[in-house]
């Protein structure tokens, strides 16, 4: 068991190592280096020299990679070209803002998804299922920037209930954030809830058809007792992994949502750093977002392991 956990952690670390190689090699192989890309037409003379010196582009690539990697491991991501300050200072408030947005969305999304998933499964092909399933298909497939734009158009402009574009300084306090994130949270949790509710639905349906549930019905176990005692624990377990993957997948969607709502989180930093051609920040973001992805998956794997005694003796790779 302990060995299995260690193995999972090791695999995660290897994945992160490859990610760091990919981003590093990618920037290295694609035309232009960090300095010429950043300075564009002014890439000559003293400015170029200074920039090359600052980033250490004059030393061989592999040495630079080792330097960079060992700094990242120690928590130092280097120097932002456009912000002209250490990347850590740029990241700090952004990470906090994104964490607030993500955790509120998750706190609302997961319970809602479980409830909706159970309702649609138990009333399968009846009116509640058809209605909820149709809505989930819509909110799942429509791109984030469309649902976000529609939310602004309907709620903020036509109904005038909430401010549409949020203007938040990136160092806003927690309370200031909370009162301004209703629409972004709705936009994000809509998609997340839809994905997870669909997953829970099919999982519950599968378990309902299993032998032990049929047995419980035949034994005369009351319906709701059967649902809560026999069906749900077994149905929600496989959902954990999918929930994790969905959350991780949403990292991409959060970028778009943050741009639409002008929310100062990590997602908008992605766009800003790429528009500014600030490659050191892009590299830092790639590693951070990949770590979040790997971390969430790891937690989900471990949770499934802990909760499912059958898996403890098996080594199942997804």
């Amino acid at each position: 068991m302990l060995l299995l956990i260690l193995k999972r952690i090791g695999l995660g670390l290897i994945t992160l190592f490859i990610v760091s190689l990919i981003t590093f090699v990618g920037v290295e192989v694609l035309p232009g280096d960090a300095c010429t890309t950043y300075l564009e037409r002014e890439a000559y003379g003293a400015a170029l020299d200074a920039c090359i010196k600052r980033l250490g582009l004059d030393i061989p690539a592999y040495e630079r990679y080792l330097d960079w990697a060992s700094n990242v491991v120690r928590g130092d991501f280097g120097y932002s070209l456009s912000g002209e300050m250490p990347i850590n200072e740029v990241l700090g408030p952004r990470v906090k803002n994104s964490l607030v947005l993500a955790s509120v969305s998750i706190l609302i999304g997961i319970p809602l998804a479980i409830v909706l998933g159970i309702i649609t499964a138990l009333w399968r092909d009846k009116l509640p299922d058809i209605m909820i399933s149709t809505i989930t298909i819509f909110s799942m497939t429509i791109p984030e920037f469309i649902s976000a734009t529609l939310l602004i158009l309907i709620v903020a402009i036509w109904l005038g209930w909430l401010p549409g574009i949020v203007i938040i300084p990136s160092d806003a306090t927690f309370y200031e954030l909370l009162s301004n994130i209703i629409l972004p949270v709705v936009a994000i949790s809509m998609i997340m809830t839809a994905h997870m509710a669909r997953m829970v639905r099919s999982s519950v349906i599968q378990v309902m058809a299993s032998d032990y549930v049929q047995m419980a019905i035949l034994k005369g176990v009351p319906y709701w007792k059967m649902v809560f005692r026999h069906v749900l624990p077994n149905a929600l377990l496989p959902a954990i992994n999918v929930v994790a993957l969905t959350i991780a997948w949403l990292l991409g969607g959060v970028v778009v949502t943050e741009v639409v709502f002008n929310y100062p989180g990590l997602g908008r930093l992605v766009i800003e750093s790429i528009s500014n051609r600030d490659l050191p920040v892009v590299q830092a973001l790639a590693i951070i977002l990949a770590s979040i992805y790997v971390g969430i998956n790891l937690i989900a794997d471990l949770m499934t392991l802990m909760l499912n005694p059958r898996l403890k003796s098996l080594q199942i790779r997804k």
Partner: peptide, 8 residues
């Protein structure tokens, strides 16, 4: 590793 880099 590629899967863990957000597509965007």
């Amino acid at each position: 590793a590629f899967l863990s880099i957000p597509w965007i």
